[in-house]
Amino acid sequence: MMLQFLTQEFEHEVTSTRKLLEAIPEKDLRYKPSEISWTMGELAQHIATIYYWYVGTFTQDVYDMATDRLERGDTNDIKATLALFESNVEKARAALTSLTEEKLQDNWTMKVGDRVVLGPMPRGVVARGFLFNHIYHHRGEMIVYLRATGNKVPGMYGPTYEDSRGGR
């Protein structure tokens, strides 16, 4: 039952993430709200990259980020980031369909080389906490970036504040 809910949420939220990434204008990709923040382009690429991590989470018991060789492209090219997103969503979807309820209960670990950075913990907990919530967190940041640069935020869960105020 959990797998069915995760799959439905995944599909719904992919649509929301796509709307958000499509709302990012090329002209603002270098915007950076503070010295320690990512640029808008870097943040967008990170959001697109998280979908790639579904593969390692759902198909491996131990995922070593040090061996990961994902080609990401230029952070100042929103079309490249959107293409990365679409490619990673397809990989994530395929990995998600390979899961079973039993595999969601198996322990999973993330490493960077010899260092364990997450886990071991049940794969279903990782799906919610590390993958889904991670994307939601960074989408929230992107909404702040878009508003700070005067751009329109797309409605993902209904009308946005701007929509409800008649565009003012």
Results as ranks from 00 to 15, higher is better:
55 V>T: 12
5 F>R: 12
158 G>C: 12
12 H>V: 14
107 N>K: 09
148 A>E: 13
50 I>L: 14
48 A>D: 03
119 G>R: 08
164 S>I: 14
81 T>H: 03
132 F>T: 15
128 R>Q: 15
58 F>Q: 00
45 Q>P: 00
68 D>Y: 12
77 D>L: 10
38 W>A: 15
23 A>S: 13
94 A>M: 03
133 N>F: 09
31 Y>A: 13
51 Y>T: 05
92 A>T: 06
137 H>F: 11
87 S>N: 13
154 P>H: 06
167 G>L: 04
66 A>E: 11
86 E>W: 01
83 A>Y: 01
145 Y>P: 01
134 H>S: 07
106 D>F: 11
55 V>H: 09
30 R>W: 06
99 L>W: 07
97 T>G: 02
157 Y>H: 14
86 E>R: 14
87 S>M: 11
54 Y>I: 02
40 M>C: 12
161 Y>E: 11
89 V>D: 02
29 L>E: 05
6 L>D: 01
108 W>P: 02
48 A>W: 00
121 M>A: 13
82 L>W: 04
165 R>E: 14
39 T>I: 08
158 G>L: 13
124 G>R: 12
168 R>P: 01
71 E>P: 05
86 E>Y: 03
18 R>L: 08
24 I>F: 03
19 K>H: 10
137 H>K: 10
72 R>H: 05
69 R>T: 14
26 E>K: 11
85 F>S: 10
66 A>V: 07
103 K>G: 02
143 I>S: 11
164 S>A: 14
79 K>P: 00
3 L>R: 05
11 E>G: 07
26 E>R: 10
123 R>L: 06
66 A>K: 09
24 I>Q: 02
114 D>R: 13
43 L>V: 08
5 F>Y: 12
123 R>E: 06
117 V>W: 03
142 M>K: 01
3 L>E: 08
80 A>I: 09
37 S>T: 13
19 K>C: 04
61 D>E: 14
21 L>H: 08
107 N>S: 08
117 V>C: 04
119 G>W: 04
159 P>L: 11
165 R>G: 04
4 Q>V: 14
97 T>V: 09
77 D>Y: 04
9 E>V: 07
17 T>I: 12
90 E>H: 07
46 H>L: 05
119 G>A: 12
83 A>F: 02
141 E>D: 15
26 E>G: 04
108 W>I: 07
27 K>S: 10
115 R>L: 13
90 E>G: 06
38 W>F: 15
118 L>Y: 09
148 A>N: 15
128 R>K: 10
107 N>Q: 09
134 H>W: 05
65 M>K: 10
41 G>L: 06
86 E>N: 14
43 L>A: 09
106 D>Q: 15
83 A>P: 00
62 V>N: 03
62 V>K: 05
33 P>E: 00
168 R>C: 02
24 I>S: 00
150 G>Q: 06
39 T>P: 00
97 T>K: 12
118 L>T: 06
130 F>M: 11
18 R>H: 09
106 D>L: 15
132 F>I: 15
110 M>L: 15
20 L>I: 15
60 Q>N: 11
148 A>Y: 00
146 L>I: 11
127 A>N: 05
48 A>E: 04
89 V>F: 02
102 E>Q: 13
139 R>H: 11
3 L>S: 08
160 T>Q: 05
111 K>L: 13
17 T>F: 01
122 P>E: 12
56 G>H: 01
